[in-house]
Amino acid sequence: MPLLKVDKLTHYFGGLRSVDNFNLELSENELVGLIGPNGAGKSTVFNLVCGLYRPSEGSITFNGHNLIGRYPHQITSLGIGRTFQNIRLWNELSVIDNLRIAHFSQIDYKLLDSLFFTGRLVRDEQKVTQEAMDLLDKFNLVPYVNELPRNLPYGIQRRVEICRALVMKPSLLLLDEPAAGMNQGEIGELINLVRWVKDEFKVTVWIIEHQMRVIMNICERIQVLDFGSIIAEGTPKEIRDNPLVIKAYLGEEVT
């Protein structure tokens, strides 16, 4: 059974068809890329999967659960972590709080425990802090625990965001343009980081990226989206040589 199965996904923004008959099957521990020109509908696909938008047609199944009609927090609690194109950490909360809050669906205590400071709250908070610190430790982020994200360098913020997405113990990790705004050195680090995350946390990674270097280096399989529909699919090498892809990226050839 595939981990994620997207079938005939279609979505309209007003009258505009932003995603058109999108199909995908992801198996466990895969690393799949989604590329395409600006405005091709890549982020929309992610938002549809996460439940931020409601698809007009089609079905999305994750781990045997039908995702259509669920709230985003329910979907992500099933084990889908994601990062954002423009980093969306909570800037008014420290790094450690960012990670703690992502535990929301995993805390066992009830509202009354949190109001009346019961033993269960203390135990659970200890567990949450422990887990968050362990995760930060793996990402070498412990020196930043009490910093506010907006005060951190860009590359660190990206790392924190990926780290936060792993809090919900996802089996699927969605990375939305993780290399945006990075220099070549940082991109090199990112490539290693994504590979390491995939192996260390046994997750399937689905990545949107503009930087061909990232995509070609790490993806086992790539889909190309243009005007909301898939125009090509295959290994990095096949995609590189596909004339349709070249046309979509560079426009009509000048003859």
């Binding site: 931020l52 927090h73 954002f84 909570w90 008014e92 960012n98 809050i101 929301f104 669906s105 949450v128």
Partner: peptide, 25 residues
Amino acid sequence: STMGKSIIAIRDDEIASELMTVNTR
């Protein structure tokens, strides 16, 4: 508490909170 502090996360970025499993509503 982690539960209650999530309301600050909602103020900061509600969509991100919802996607980080916070039952915002």
